[in-house]
Design a protein around this nucleic acid. Structure first.
Lengths: 137, 137
DNA sequence: AATAATTATTAGTCTTACCTAACATTTATT
DNA sequence: AATAAATGTTAGGTAAGACTAATAATTATT
């Protein structure tokens, strides 16, 4: 196995959401995450407690929460995967953007970094070709 | 949501394995599946019982088991996804084949049929271009 | 045919990740 | 400052999907 999953898909979703929310809110609250992920506040609470325990988030009782540097890095990894997947699906394959988004939300948690790196490489070459030749592939 | 998952990823894995095993063995036994999936026989038993209940497999106590037509169709859907994913990863992206296989094993359960269809379309065009132009993309 | 070996089943347990409902704390409103 | 509203926490429960260990049934071997 090459895909050692350190943080579960579920926790990755929480991290990613916290990252996104922190980008306009600064203060991220349990309720915001619950709303965003369509999940009970108590579920968020337990997830955040776990993330705190493994040092990916800092959270004090009744207070707001923040990603640690390590948590931020982990969140970015997931979000970057999401973004290249969506770009590839929509711009290269021509998949409808809602479907692309849904698929990316699931695939981002299981695809290896190796494959993602190759996909990025490919995508960059592809875009270059497109802008030159205007070719169909 | 577009990805209505009727059969869980876990059950899809069982179906796929049963399909593969039935292709040289004809008689598929619980133990074979357990060995193949690296899982306890009791886990296979409960999964098979579920698949039987929803009409994807026929299984009688202490006997061998078989896919129903419906089960076979479901299994093929998953395996076809696996195959195009591996081909794309290895032949287009140049991913190492073990990594490609591992990634495909996880992605096959969550990627939509829409995206797979577009990927197949793309792959066919790509192969055609390659054989003509011998181009790098 | 009797016994050993293999295979299948059952019962009970564990973990993950969700839930609801009750309660506690903080923040906002009058 | 008192009370209402919002937010956070805790306790207890559920379902999926795995596990081990014990038992039952089948198949092979002597």
């Amino acid at each position: 196995m090459t895909n050692k999953i350190t943080v579960t898909p579920s926790l990755q979703d929480y991290l990613e959401t916290i990252l996104n929310l922190s980008e306009y809110n600064k203060k991220v609250r349990i309720t915001d995450i619950a709303t965003e992920l369509n999940v009970a506040k108590s579920s968020v609470h337990q997830a955040v407690t776990q993330l705190d325990k493994i040092g990916l988030v800092v959270h004090e009782r009744y207070g707001p929460l923040e990603l640690t540097e390590k948590g931020r890095r982990e969140a970015l990894k997931v979000r970057d995967k999401h973004e290249i997947l969506v770009k590839f699906f929509t711009e290269v394959l021509g998949v409808d953007s809602e479907i692309a988004h849904n698929d990316a939300c699931l695939i981002e948690h299981v695809i290896s970094q190796e494959t993602i790196d190759k996909l990025i490489e490919f995508f960059e070459k592809y875009v270059k070709k497109q802008s030159k030749g205007g070719n169909s592939i």
